[in-house]
Nucleic acid binder design. Sequence first.
RNA 1: GGCGACGUAGCCAAGUGGUUAAGGCAGCGGUCUGCAAAAUCGCUAUCACCAGUUCGAUUCUGGUCGUCGCCUCCA
Length: 475
Amino acid sequence: MALRLYNTLTRSKEDFQTLEPGVVKMYSCGPTVYNYAHIGNLRSYIFADVLRRALEYSGYEVKHVMNVTDVGHLTSDADIGEDKLDREARKEGKNPWEIARHYEEVFFNDLKALDIEQPTVKCRATEHIPDMIALVEKLLERGHAYETDQAVYYDVTTFPSYTALSRQSLEDKITAARQEVQEDPGKRNPADFALWFKAVGRFENHIMRWDSPWGVGFPGWHIECSAMSMKYLGETLDIHTGGEDHIWVHHPNETAQSEGATGKQFVRWWMHGAFLVVGDLSRGVEERRMGKSEGNFVRLQTLINREYDPLAYRYACLMAHYRTKLKFTWDSIDAAASGYNSLKDFVARAKQIGGEEMPWVGEYRERFKAALADDLNMPMAMAAVSELVREAEKRKEYGVLDALYDFDKVLGLQLRSAAERATNIDKEIESLIMEREEARATKDWARADAIRKQLGDQGILLEDTPAGTLWRRTT
RNA sequence: GGCGACGUAGCCAAGUGGUUAAGGCAGCGGUCUGCAAAAUCGCUAUCACCAGUUCGAUUCUGGUCGUCGCCUCCA
């Protein structure tokens, strides 16, 4: 199956092909582990996961690398500011490494709950400092970088295609827009960004620090992605994913660093996921990105506490295209939960009734694949799923599980295990159901209803259908 | 101030220069049903507004209004 994927670099959909036949080298910008990830962050990883699964579904082997930013980024612009990990560390009375490990663990647990495949390689920034230093040295050698008494900077004027991805002219940007921003007077251009910070001035007490050719300090906040992606995947990646906010700063910087060092194309497909937007959830939606200071911070755990299945959130994400912002409301997650539940109910029913796959199912297989191939149009793929289900019900031909389980390789909604869990009953319950069948045959409604009630109390719902009595666990 | 995106039914959300504008959720009415549950049928959108291009625009162009994002670490 040939995929067409939207490339931010060209702002168009292109026929996807790998550099090396059959193998996709894919890198995803991972989390900064100084706080919990919210569901907006997680949407990006669901997007990357669907992409990865679609590639695997298409027959590729995917080498997927994700970084863990445990160095901490600065809280404000440019060359000053408090390190986020340091700040959290002081607040919680732990050292930055402990903080980072905690949030990292929670993050990967969230991914697991969302049935997101683990990256082939997870790499921590703090464990790749020598790789970063080597890269900075190379950039210095090649004349892309310069040193001041505060830091080592990348000189963006040495990289002519710096704005190719962002398509924003540097002149138009406001620099030092915020009062607290203090620029290093040694910087040559406002857009120059740090490759290495020296532990001087405001950073004198920075907790995380390493030796380097430029003295004790810590790496800049873009260099890790260049160093680690090239270390594990080579100088040219097939796909690089991230949130759409990275189009203008982080990814151009990564490109400048990598291509500046190698002289080769860094990324062939840049792919960016759109934001989840949300407002004051107590009052309906005002479209606003989720943020810690916005009062709209929803974690996966928040959903779990409200008794939503994490996969209902995944389902909600699948109902919107990855390049379109998705409005999150309690109504929308309710809608997703209902839709997901009825899909699970259907597979449980189909599993019990069974049947051979009829030729008409082929049309839906084709529709699903076509939707997937068209830049991961999951809403359209999900529509094909819904219509497949409706068609099966209408025809009373339930041999559609092979197709649905096949689709689920990409959807990641755990349909097979949901069906198995829902229909798995022990001997005792089975014999009660049979007893009830006999009672119904003799119109002993009192006994039949008593058994229905008894099983209902155990979380087992019975459905009397022309095909016999079906059951499923509702808990 | 600069750049960009978006505005489709009660809610979420696809899509297209021209037969009936996907799908999900919610709602209403009917069928089926011992009960229950499910299923099924029907109903619910002049595609923000204005103008232009066109034989024809929701889809292209321009403008207006509104919303949002980026320009600063942030998915």
